[in-house]
């Protein structure tokens, strides 16, 4: 059986590419990193991928706003190819800076909806572990999850915000994929940590499930705690890509 190919898209400043490559490998995909430079030269590389991943980091140093320039570059280089991938229901995930990028591109939450990721209410970059409740049966990355996910956040601009119409649309259309449980670390509206598009194949989330893919990565492993592997999100995506 050939493994589904996962293309991890990276810009200058993307820095969690290795972490997500490792997670995808453990989840049963065959991951490959592709730089924006390489996409510009050969946009068709996207067409070979069964899964698209936009990795976290500080693409272009967050200059002009987190994800802004990455969005411009991706739109320019492979905007059409990404649209095709969505219409073919190939799963796409954007993590942290990748989520910010998908929102800037207008892919999330989707046509006619307005959302943004603003500065955390604390005003500063924050790195801490959070618990996430999967809450969408539409999203192919979360629909089969059986337990809450535990993993770290590491961002300064993760406050999900949107207008009232968009929020009620998201809720009505089952597009709220992940919610923060017990602590809302950044002031996101409705405790939203991740949303999917109206097709359910594109997920964007601020936390980093790729940093909890083996048991001992849990911060309370020394206290005997073992639960909430973020790996299961990637396994869901890989599983869907295989269907």
């Amino acid at each position: 059986m050939t493994l589904p190919v996962a293309a991890v898209l990276c810009a200058p400043g993307t820095n969690r590419d290795n972490d997500v490559l490792f997670a995808l490998q453990l989840a049963g995909a065959s991951p490959v990193a592709i730089l924006t430079n390489e996409l510009l030269q050969n946009p068709s590389r996207i067409n070979d991928a069964d899964i698209l991943v936009i990795a976290g980091g500080f693409s272009y140093a967050d200059a002009l706003g987190a994800g802004r320039l990455f969005a411009v570059e991706l739109e320019h280089a492979v905007g059409e190819q990404i649209s095709t991938a969505i219409s073919e229901r190939r799963p796409i995930i954007g993590i942290c800076n990748g989520f910010q990028t998908l929102v800037r591109m207008g892919i999330l939450p989707g046509t006619g909806q307005r959302a943004a990721l603003g500065h955390n209410t604390s005003g500063v970059f924050d790195c801490r572990w959070v618990e996430l409740e999967p809450s969408s049966k539409k999203c192919v990355w979360t629909q089969n999850l059986s337990e809450n996910i535990e993993c770290p956040i590491a961002h300064g601009e993760g406050r999900f915000t949107c207008d009232d119409d968009t929020l009620s649309n998201l809720q009505r259309n089952d597009q709220v994929a992940l919610r923060y449980i017990s602590t809302n670390p950044n002031g996101s509206v409705d405790n939203i940590a991740g949303v999917c598009d109206s097709t359910g194949v594109v997920l964007g989330l601020m936390p980093h499930p790729e940093n909890h893919v083996v048991r001992r990565q849990h911060p309370q492993s020394h206290r005997g705690v073992s639960r909430g592997l973020g790996l299961s999100i990637f396994q869901s995506g890989v599983c869907y890509a295989r269907r």
Binding site: N15, D19, D126, C127, A154, H208, R223
Partner: peptide, 19 residues
């Protein structure tokens, strides 16, 4: 908390620990 101490997924005993 201002520093990313989780990236690379290799920080086994973290600077902040406990219940």
């Amino acid at each position: 908390h201002r520093y990313d101490h989780e990236i690379r997924g290799a920080t086994l005993v973290r600077p902040l620990i406990g219940a």
